[in-house]
Amino acid sequence: MIEVEGLSKIYGASHAVEEVSFAAGEGEIVGFLGPNGAGKTTTMRILSCFMAPSSGSARIAGFDILENSLEVRRSIGYLPENAPLYDEMSVRDYLNYVAVLRGVPKSQRAIRLEAALDAGQLEHRADTLIRKLSKGYRQRVGIAQAIIHDPPVLILDEPSSGLDPRQRAETRHFIKSQAPQRTVLLSTHILPDVQETCSRVIVINAGRVVAQDAVENLAAKASGLNLVLARPTPDASEKLSRVAGVSAVRREPNGAFSLDLTGENDAREEIARMCVAENWGLLELSRRRANLEEVFLKLTTSD
């Protein structure tokens, strides 16, 4: 549904987005994760045809963003970081106006309007002026406008920023409910949202994709082992790093070692055997499960 290839956006000398490539299949919910200023919004603006890329290409629902821009825009529902609302309109008038702009035929407008009000749980606020709505309701109107034309692809830029915990849970619930019919690209830096809603995560940092995988795989890759030895020899680090499945070994004070794993096979058995054979005096061997937050920090901290 979304295919992105080598997308770059250059502002003068700085790269906002550099060679970004990824894909999202039909009905998939993909999380777009990265610190502020990583290039998430720029990428989303390019995909929604608000901006043109400096180089690279992208296809949405089979249409090229540069060659078939109007078709692409018909196929996506986009919620920018700040919901694009007209304060002087009522919720109903606003959604009706957006339906017209997005090309919903007149015969279907009433049905789509009800569906959008329903999705945003806005029925009882339909005739309220947008100016008078709270932040949470404004965000719901933003979500309702994104789906008013029943698009196959939804692009949501930080849909739950500034919401309280209950509203965030509702937003998560909404996003999850979109899964079978729509492909969702969701940018956020609220990690529990990603963990709960997304099947796959793309991590972007300083304009580049640094990782993309299923949430559990990412966590597994960043997990490792903690090892404490009573009598480690000076060459213990080197020997441990040669064990299959171990990618890095860090020696810490008091005989402690921290091992990173490649994630392919469980190295624990082999390490235990080596400790006994070398007579290092194995005191502790435990698994360290990384959570998404650690993965995120690890991937997006450059040192």
Binding site: S48, C49, R74, Y78, P84, Q145
Partner: peptide, 14 residues
């Protein structure tokens, strides 16, 4: 200023 230009230009309008 309010960002609604993003709504107009992500809609299929010329």
């Amino acid at each position: 200023a309010t960002g609604t230009l993003e709504l107009l230009f992500t809609s299929p309008l010329t």
